[in-house]
């Protein structure tokens, strides 16, 4: 989250609930971690951007990749060429958890989806810190379908905790844990699992 090369990819498809962006496979790095906070401008507005969490990174196959998989001997340069120059992008799936408008953070779905090919950026530490001051986005994550929501919220919280100074990190995780306990009080096994995932190292 140093902000020097924070581009995650470009929008492939999008809705108000989330979006998928694509990138070259050789650009996959720390910016594409499961649970990372990303942002993308909404439609053509420069003042508003959707904020989401990466919940899946998918590398689809293509006919050449299938042939190469079946080949008996593939030399190393072919493999590297296939990885670097393949025509199918790596897809990064994002669930929307809020949006930012004129600097204010909102924990609800954005009013409009981003346009295709818009640039998806990693949120910087300050943005993550500001966005996670409240926990209202938890419900959006926990109630999302087709998303590994327990693992995602845990990964997002661990990710966000590093945006906090050392002295505040423990209190942040306790605060989030308490909110999770309120939301998951009816499912104690699930709560226990999530808390185990976010428990700080003592």
């Amino acid at each position: 989250m140093d902000g020097t090369s924070s581009i995650v990819g470009r929008i492939l498809r999008a809705s108000t609930t989330g979006f998928d962006c694509g990138t070259r496979s050789n650009r996959i790095d720390d910016n594409h971690n499961f649970g990372a906070f990303v942002k993308v401008p909404i439609s053509d507005s420069q003042d508003a951007c959707a904020i989401g969490l990466i919940y899946a990174i998918r590398i689809d196959d293509d006919p050449l990749a299938r042939e190469l998989v079946m080949a008996a001997n593939v030399d190393n340069s072919t493999l590297l060429d296939q990885r670097d120059n393949r025509m199918v992008p790596v897809e990064v799936c994002v669930i929307n958890v809020g949006y930012c408008y004129n600097g204010a953070m909102f924990h609800s779905l954005p009013p409009r989806p981003p346009l295709s090919l818009s640039e998806v950026m990693l949120c910087d530490a300050g943005e993550v810190y500001d966005f996670t001051q409240r926990c209202d986005y938890f419900r959006l994550v926990l109630s999302a379908s087709e998303v590994p929501c327990d693992e995602l919220i845990a990964a997002a919280l661990r990710y966000a905790s590093y945006a906090y100074p050392d002295a505040e990190r423990y209190d942040f995780l306790v605060k989030c844990g308490r909110q999770l306990a309120n939301l998951l009080a009816n499912d104690l096994k699930r709560l226990s699992h999530v808390l185990t995932l976010i428990r700080p190292e003592m």
């Binding site: 423990y170 306790v174 308490r178 999770l180 306990a181 309120n182 808390l195 428990r199």
Partner: peptide, 22 residues
């Protein structure tokens, strides 16, 4: 929670989370 209480005796984090919520 009465039949399966969380083990918080030696875990201040879980204690801080559970007490007052669940």
């Amino acid at each position: 929670i009465q039949s399966d209480p969380p083990e918080i005796a030696n875990d201040p984090f879980l204690r801080a989370v559970y007490v007052g919520t669940a």
